[in-house]
Amino acid sequence: MDLLLTLNLSISELVSPLTAAYILCAIGLSVHFGYTGLLNFGQAAFAAVGAYGMAIGVLTLKLPLLAAMGFALLCVVVFALILGIPTLRLRADYLAIVTIASAEVFRYLMSTSGFSEVTGGSNGLSQFGYEFYTWNPVPKGQYNLGLFTWTEEEVWLRLVAFSLVALSAVLVWLMMRSPWGRVMKGIREDEDAVRSLGKNVFWYKLQSLIIGGLFAGLGGIIFVIAMSNVQPSTWVTTFTFMIWTVLLLGGAATILGPIAGGMLFFVLLTLTNELLDGLRAIGWLPFLDQPQVAQIRFILIGLALMLLVVFRPQGIFGNKKELRFNA
């Protein structure tokens, strides 16, 4: 086992564009759940709407990529309205079930063969992202940054992804320190109390759903540009639950929580995977084969989720007094 390579691989997760995509989704979920208290179990759908919106915008509507991204975000807003207007009046646990069901319905619709001319069916879509690299201002070449060597395209993708993460974090910070954010936190604590003070709770929840959804939509866009394809099987419920784990790890009602949570999550995941695989390779884990070692990662995700919720619901950065789950 090459410890240095293991470390290197793990640390590269810190700045992987996929990590940035998950972080964006988690920032969105922090607006939903951390600040407004909405139990959204369909975050995968918001990301998927963003991803498919962009891909379909380019491939079917023949839009330029930037316009397609705009179209994708518009789709996210429409999705949030369709989902939110009828459901935001429901009890919290019903909202959880409706959002998870809606996300699955969206996924089925994307993978059904009936619409495959537009959605690509179960094969998904690809070849929509070339234009992204034509914007690349980074000169051609290999960039050696100590630990990693990246091509100009890899540098550009990471630059964009993490700029979006930074921008989103600043936006959330601006929103949440304002009186608007105060209303959101009030709704998280007790929506009837906020209603009794003359605030249109329903409208605020809808705004929260839209804004958090837009961050997730951006996350979906980054995800599929990094993967250079969009497939329906990505947006399963496990995707949503990983975002929850990321968010709860860092702290749901914090600005830096989703970022630190995302980075830590993927570094730890890769680190344990590589270590276990290394142990297996030198014969210390005779009862496991290579794919099984990869499967252990999911067991760790599940365990992390359980332990976090029970023992540290406020996350690493959260203030215990600031976030508690309202049963």
Binding site: F241, W244, T245, F298, L305, M306, V309, F325, N326, A327
Partner: peptide, 23 residues
């Protein structure tokens, strides 16, 4: 532990059991 918290715990548990069964 609150009910919404327990709901999320059950999600974690479902992932753990599912992948144990897979292994």
């Amino acid at each position: 532990v609150g009910l919404n918290q327990m709901m999320i715990v059950s999600i974690g548990l479902s992932i753990v059991i599912r992948y144990l069964l897979l292994i």
